[in-house]
Design a protein around this nucleic acid. Structure first.
Length: 605
DNA sequence: GTACATATGCGGCCCTCCAT
DNA sequence: ATGGAGGGCCGCATATGTAC
């Protein structure tokens, strides 16, 4: 079997032909035409196509042909087409390497492979890749975390391929033709699918103009950053110590399971290393990852997706940096407040709406809320205060039935009514639910990227040592800029929502946790009366026998059941009124309380 | 629960290819 | 020129990882 230039050119594979518009356009499909007319159109289109020529070194082509002939000799099937698939994959790798001007590994998009090599049963591109690996033609880097390192502008989802050393340096025999616009096509297809999906759900599509100066500035900030060798050390250490990783929820045969015993195995550690290596390679090629989601407008980059512990080792212009991670506490609930108060239900608000607001704006919202729920139903298991709240209240499509939600609705009837008003809508008499999470995330990303980051750029952008790395509901900045950035965040969030936000840094969170721990151990060793503490303790630790403070000036009774309810019907207005009345109490002692909304997040405890 | 990513399998629809 | 077989494209589903 001889495979020269003309043989390959005549193989006219379907995906290649597509770029010559052999397929019917949408308009042509609508026009009625006989079978004969359709075939004539196809023939003419085929004749008009330029010849498809593959670019391959002659030695490489001969080698693959020999291996192929040995394998498929005497077997039935379209051997010419199959061989072309082998050569086509090599062509894609080869032409990419020529474009990049390097013999290093290059990345090929999964969808490109599907588009050109095919995925048909029994002979998919995975088979082609396996064969070429077996024949020592290609080397393929399998990295399940490679997603974090792909260059999204040029090559969104990719795997690394490189030719084996034995095929380097061979002379090329053919010349590639133009028109293989597979990257653009794959990207367009993906975006089209995503937009259609979102529109079907009734969501607006977030179009972000990346050319805006402050976004270009953010991109430049990220391009100045890198990961220090300490990151590799950290991974090694985590592997040695078999560090626990965060819980994941996995689906096993359709049933969601929570896995809490995950450790840093050598396999995962290697994947972390591979990802970092690919990131560095992309960075060396000046192709850092940068992407705005069309769904929620959030910014996605390697920084956002790589494991959180690595962020301490991010360098700026090659210099180690102390980062302050300024987070908006309970971000999505915070933005929900604004929407709640905009509803009709808020017009006839009971005291519970304001009580909910104060809970949200106070420290430890999720824990406090879980405490309230558990007081109502003592036996109700609370797995994870935050997850439970989101599962049952924010993302729930079942707004009545679960015990958690039922209790929540009793405690906060106005919030419940307002939530339904926001979420529920009818299409032809059928009740549907909006995707509240996406609505909140859209609002959040607009405020953070278009307002806060824009203002930081305009006011502080002239400082050369200031960079901002957005993390959805927070900003990473060099520590020396912590306070000015925090001031801008507070100001803009207050302006956008009307509520005073709680913006914390990671060290502050850690300090708070440790203080809590220390207070707990101190309470246990009560034999010795504690020395008077000069530093004010965290608000939560001011608990007394009767109640505890959930926000400055807002005190909740430890045991509302001390009072006798008016009746035993929790759904009656009297019961709810009693519950809300008995839940909250006057502050103990003569201490002066600040106004609720004056709660300042920037004040240290 | 949400978003993002990779990777794979399956079935429907319709186009391409091949033998006649 | 034509009927049937083969196969590409695409939506959808599933399993796994990261981040909120």
């Amino acid at each position: 079997m001889a495979y020269g230039r003309n043989n390959l050119a005549s193989l006219k594979l379907n995906p290649l032909e597509k770029w010559g518009s052999v397929l019917q356009s949408d308009e042509q499909k609508k026009q009625p035409q006989t079978n004969a007319q359709a075939r004539k159109r196809q023939r003419d289109a085929l004749k008009a196509l330029p010849p498809t020529i593959l670019l391959l070194p002659a030695g490489l082509q001969r080698y693959i042909t020999d291996q192929y002939n040995a394998r498929y000799q005497g077997k039935p099937g379209n051997h010419g087409k199959r061989l072309a698939k082998y050569l086509l994959l090599c062509h894609l790798v080869w032409s990419e390497q020529q474009k990049a001007g390097t013999l290093d590994a290059i990345h090929l998009h999964n969808e490109i492979l599907r588009l050109h090599i095919g995925k048909d049963k029994g002979f998919s591109y995975t088979d082609v890749v396996e064969d070429l690996k077996e024949w020592s033609v290609l080397e393929v880097s399998d990295s399940y975390l490679a997603s974090g390192c792909a260059n999204r502008q040029v090559d969104p989802h990719s795997k690394a391929y490189t030719f084996a050393d034995s095929f380097h340096g061979l002379e090329s025999e053919f010349v590639a033709v133009d028109g293989l616009r597979y990257r653009e096509r794959a990207a367009q297809d993906r975006l089209k699918r995503q937009i259609a999906k979102n529109q079907a759900k009734g969501l607006r599509v977030m179009v972000v103009d990346e050319q805006q100066p402050h976004l270009q500035w953010l991109k430049a900030c990220w391009e100045r950053c890198d990961y220090s060798p300490n990151t590799d050390e950290l991974i090694n250490q985590m592997e040695r110590e078999q560090t626990y990783l965060r819980d994941v929820v996995v689906k096993v045969k359709g049933v969601r399971q929570r896995r809490t015993d995950r450790r840093m195995t050598p396999r995962i550690a290697q994947a972390y290393r591979d990802s970092l290596e690919l990131f560095r390679r992309n960075k060396a090629n000046h192709t850092p990852e940068w992407h705005f989601s069309a769904t929620n407008g959030r910014l996605h980059s390697f920084f956002n997706r790589y494991f959180t512990g690595s962020r301490d080792h991010v360098t700026l212009d090659g210099q180690a940096m102390v980062w302050a991670d300024l987070d908006l506490a309970a971000s999505q609930v915070y933005f929900l407040l604004k929407q709640l108060y905009a509803t009709r239900a808020a017009g006839q608000a009971g005291p519970d709406l304001d009580a909910f607001r104060d809970l949200v704006l106070a420290e430890g919202f999720y824990q406090n809320l879980a405490g309230l729920i558990q007081k109502e139903i003592p036996g109700l298991p609370i797995n994870d205060a935050k997850t439970d709240f989101f599962t049952h209240v924010i993302y729930s499509k079942n707004h009545q039935a679960t015990p958690y939600r039922g209790t929540f609705n009793h405690l906060f009837p106005t919030v419940h009514a307002a939530l339904l008003e926001i979420v529920r809508y009818k299409v032809k008499g059928v009740t549907k639910f909006r995707n509240l999470a996406v609505l909140l995330q859209q609002e959040e990303s607009q405020v953070f990227l278009q307002t806060i980051c824009r203002r930081i750029h305009d006011e502080l952008g002239h400082h050369q040592d200031l960079v901002v790395l957005p993390v959805h509901d927070g900003l990473c900045v060099p520590q020396q800029y912590q306070e000015p950035v925090r001031a801008i965040m507070n100001e803009e969030l207050l302006r956008a929502t009307g509520f005073q936000p709680t913006v914390r840094t990671t060290p502050e969170k850690k300090a708070k946790k440790e203080a809590k721990k220390a207070a707990a151990t101190e309470a246990r060793e009560e034999a010795v009366p504690a020395a008077p503490v000069q530093v004010p303790a965290p608000v939560e630790e001011l608990a007394c026998e009767v109640g505890f403070e959930v926000a400055p000036g807002i005190w909740v009774r430890m045991d509302p059941a001390l009072d006798v309810p008016p009746n035993n019907d929790p759904s009656s207005p009297e019961y709810v009124a009693w519950l809300l009345g008995s839940l909250f109490m006057d502050p103990p002692g003569p201490s002066v309380q600040e106004p609720v909304l004056a709660y300042s997040c920037s004040d240290p405890y």
